[in-house]
């Protein structure tokens, strides 16, 4: 009898160590703890008093477009896709932005690996995540089987998936720009301090479409404007002076898919603020970098808005 009570007691003790969560959301916060050691003129209080920006009304009415070019420096067909992306950007410099993601469906594929000839590592951890996430190896049925491939604001209407081949980028971009369906607005401000290489990014996200019911995520990408390095060309030769454009180098907060604004907290016409601090790695020239800040839909993956912002 004593043994039975002992066993029942043990089980009862362990049963009590289960947590049940009825409301899964914590009290809402929309700021990130910032690293004020990157601010050379004082600490948090000084930064808040002297540097913190105040946003005015966002008067933008245009939906911008982001071209994602999944590419690789050993992919001989990839320069063809890069030409399409650059042409779209050049034709619409204030509305079309490019993120060249060096990744394949398996993440780091043979096209992206470095070797004695292709010595520049143009990949980043977040880009590898994108490749895997949107590639056919993880996303069932995705047509993204190899490089080159890409997306136009991750719009799915063309293929049923948020990716598409480069021969449809131009038509999809034209269609979306013409429709100009702006669901979310973004504005941003930055403070860069060269002595510490510290960057502070402040963003304001404004939900314009009351019908959005999915979780939204805000992503801040670091992009290198240009880099001269080897690239395999279509005839399998190597162009050692190829100019790589708009190389995706990572996300400021390390979150490939961004920070969440959960659906339960989205209010009509609500404004939400996300702030970042980031130390620019020594390898980058601040004048050769820019940021792409975008908002994605967690269900459809569509990017509702993207803006370009310089670091300085």
């Amino acid at each position: 009898m004593k043994k039975g009570i002992f066993i029942i007691g043990l089980f009862a003790m362990m049963f009590t160590s289960c947590d049940k969560v009825d409301n899964i959301y914590p009290p809402y916060t929309n700021t990130t703890d910032l690293d004020y050691s990157l601010y050379p003129n004082g600490g948090e209080q000084e930064y808040l008093a002297n540097e913190w920006p105040t946003f005015t009304a966002n008067t933008n009415t245009d939906r911008n477009i982001m071209i994602e070019d999944y590419t690789g420096h050993k992919c001989n067909n990839c320069p063809n896709a890069a030409v399409v992306a650059e042409a779209l950007k050049d034709a619409n410099p204030t509305r079309v932005f490019v993120s060249s993601v060096h990744a394949s469906p398996e993440g780091l594929g043979s096209f992206q690996q470095v070797d004695a000839t292709y010595t520049d590592d143009l990949t980043c951890a977040e880009g590898i995540e994108y490749g895997k996430h949107f590639g056919a190896l993880e996303w069932t049925g995705s047509p993204f089987w190899g490089n080159p491939y890409g997306s136009v604001t991750r719009n799915s209407e063309n293929t049923g998936y948020p990716v598409q081949a480069h021969n449809t980028w131009t038509s999809t971009t034209t269609t979306l720009m013409t429709a100009n369906d702006l669901k979310v607005n973004i504005q941003a401000a930055t403070n860069y301090f060269s002595s510490t290489r510290g960057l502070f990014l402040h963003t304001e996200l404004e939900v314009l479409d009351a019908n959005l019911t999915s979780d939204l995520y805000i992503v801040a990408q670091l992009i290198e404007d240009t880099l001269v390095g080897p690239q395999k060309m279509q005839d399998n030769s190597t162009n050692y002076t190829y100019v790589h454009h708009d190389i995706f180098r990572g996300c400021l907060d390390g979150r490939a898919f961004g920070q969440k604004l959960d659906a339960a907290h989205i209010d009509d016409a609500g404004k939400y603020h996300y702030n970042y601090s980031y130390k620019l790695p020594d390898q980058y020239d601040v004048t050769n970098m820019h940021l792409l800040i975008y908002v994605r839909d967690a269900s459809t993956e569509e990017i509702y808005q993207v803006i370009k912002h310089n670091l300085e």
């Binding site: 089980f11 362990m14 049963f15 160590s17 289960c18 969560v21 914590p26 920070q259 969440k260 959960d262």
Partner: peptide
């Protein structure tokens, strides 16, 4: 009869996670 429980700290800002999860 079995009871197994795991403990892992809630490290998410956007969700309240159950830190103790049991299976029995």
């Amino acid at each position: 009869a079995s009871f197994v429980s795991k403990y892992q700290k809630d490290d998410r800002e956007d969700l309240i996670l159950p830190e103790n999860v049991g299976a029995y």
